[in-house]
């Protein structure tokens, strides 16, 4: 652990549960909306649920988007995007008419589509099976597929290779986790995935 672990607060979602999970792992995070703290943090977490467009508006208006870019591309500090956080790290989201994301992860975030023939319920809610790449750092120490908790209506398509760390299938395959150098994100909620998620968070912290 370096100097600071900052959970980025841009007004969306339950940040307390991420705090609780990190504290359980003996990490004491700072919850902050201050771009200056974000620019210098060694470890960033970008959680969140809700609308992609609204979140990007918040991140851009507050200067947090620029601070995140600086932290991860200039200073090379590590970041974990969770749920909406993963989506925001992508290039583009189609929700509410569409807008650009942070552009850290290749790919487009689109609404979960119905498979031909069958009918699936949207949002995708609950634990689902995640298959990971053997060299994944987030999934270090796991054997075989891992059950993780999802709650979302939009997802990142699998065109995001390389960097694809884990896949989940709901109607169609989508990116469950991505990791490329210092950039990490998960569509599922590690802080809500019982001991599976605590272990994934622990792997991120020690990565």
């Amino acid at each position: 652990m370096g100097r600071a672990c900052v959970i980025i607060d841009y007004g969306m979602g339950n940040l307390q549960s991420v705090v609780n999970a990190l504290r359980y792992l003996d990490v004491d995070p700072i919850v902050s909306s201050d771009p200056k703290l974000v620019r210098d943090a060694d470890t960033l977490l970008l959680p969140g649920v809700g609308s992609f467009r609204k979140a990007m508006d918040e991140l851009n208006a507050s200067g947090l988007a620029e601070a995140i870019q600086h932290a991860v591309t200039v200073q090379h500090h590590k970041i974990l995007g969770i749920c909406l956080g993963q989506q925001l790290m992508a290039e583009f989201g189609t929700e509410d008419g569409g807008c650009n994301g942070l552009g850290l992860v290749p790919g487009v975030v689109d609404r979960i589509s119905q498979p031909s023939g069958g009918q699936i319920k949207v949002p995708h809610v609950g634990f689902n099976r995640v298959s990971f790449e053997p060299e994944s750092r987030l999934f270090y120490g796991f054997e075989g597929p891992v059950d993780c908790y999802f709650v979302h209506s939009y997802s990142l398509g699998v065109q995001a290779r390389p960097g694809l760390a884990a896949l989940c299938d709901y109607g169609a395959p989508f990116v469950a986790a991505y990791e490329n150098d210092n950039l990490y994100c998960t569509q599922f909620h590690p802080e809500k995935s019982q001991t599976n998620g605590l272990r994934i968070l622990s792997n991120f912290i020690s990565a």
Partner: peptide, 12 residues
């Protein structure tokens, strides 16, 4: 896994 059986490596 059971919380008592999982090694979380207490990263801090």
């Amino acid at each position: 896994p059971d919380i008592r059986a999982v090694d979380l490596g207490r990263a801090g």
